[in-house]
């Protein structure tokens, strides 16, 4: 007891307490969080499998026949592309109620399962389809893609695709490390706050060009050195105030110290 009392003011105590609290919350959550039902994926009837998966995992919010409920919109007519995008990027199933579904690295379903659910949703009503391999492999014009990106995308996703803020806590996510397929699907379906950029707005060549441009931006060397997150002048200002000034003051301090 005494030892505990003596150490409770130790700086590490706060960190330890925080860690314990977080661990406890995490453990509790993982106990109660919904788990993906393990429906067997048979190759025979994709739509039927998709329906089973859907009803086990998605129907709580989207309704038993995807007609929508208070907690989730209808999926009739959203197309296979919407399902492939939302589930394939981990946005669905929604991990916690929030202003916006975040992208999650850990995908809960196999691509086969996603395809089955996509097939089921696509069977309800016509909607944007998942782009085929040929569409995705279309060689785009990087310069045109850049122009299209700046006019149609940069205002939300930022000049380099690092993302930006929208109203009331919503945001346009960063576009780094996103598969070409998912970028394409996002454009044709307009997920969440994002408007729809179907082929009548930006044609397939334009989309391919935008994707090529993003790939180029993502893979090109940082010719000037660290890119500070490509956030524009704010991060540059923070850098010069924190690191620049510290370097200068550190040097000046050394200069003013009497030698040993």
């Amino acid at each position: 007891m005494n030892a505990l009392a003596a150490r409770r003011r130790h700086p590490a105590a706060i960190a330890l307490l925080l860690f314990l609290g977080l661990a406890l919350v995490g453990a509790t959550y993982s106990l109660f969080a919904p788990k993906p039902a393990q429906a067997a994926v048979a190759t025979a009837d994709k739509v039927a499998d998709g329906k089973a998966l859907f009803q086990a995992n998605c129907a709580t919010c989207h309704g038993i026949s995807a007609e929508g409920t208070k907690s989730g919109p209808t999926l009739i007519g959203v197309g296979a592309a919407a399902v492939d995008f939302q589930v394939g990027t981990g946005r669905m199933p929604l991990s916690a109620p929030n202003v916006q579904a975040p992208r999650i690295e850990q995908i809960k379903y196999s691509q086969e399962q996603i395809d089955a659910m996509s097939a089921f949703v696509a069977s309800l009503a016509p909607g944007p389809a998942i782009p085929d391999q040929a569409t995705l492999e279309t060689e785009g014009d990087v310069a045109l893609g850049g122009e299209l990106f700046r006019v149609n995308c940069a205002m939300c996703h930022n000049f380099a695709g690092s993302g930006g803020a929208l109203t009331r806590g919503k945001y346009a996510p960063a576009l780094y490390g996103v598969e070409a397929k998912h970028i394409y699907e996002a454009m044709v379906t307009g997920p969440q706050s994002m408007p729809v950029f179907d082929d009548k707005n930006i044609d397939a060549k334009g989309k391919a060009s935008i994707i090529s441009y993003l790939r180029t931006v993502e893979t090109q060397a940082n010719v000037g050195g660290m890119n500070l997150g490509n956030m524009g002048p704010v991060s540059e200002g923070m850098f010069i105030w924190i690191f620049g000034l510290a370097l200068m003051i550190g040097t000046a301090y050394w200069l003013g110290q009497k030698a040993a």
């Binding site: 700046r150 940069a154 205002m155 996703h157 930022n158 930006g164 956030m231 002048p233 923070m238």
Partner: peptide, 12 residues
């Protein structure tokens, strides 16, 4: 016509 998210001036 275009604009980028995070349109800021230099810090000063």
């Amino acid at each position: 016509s275009p604009v980028t998210a995070g349109s800021q001036p230099d810090w000063y």
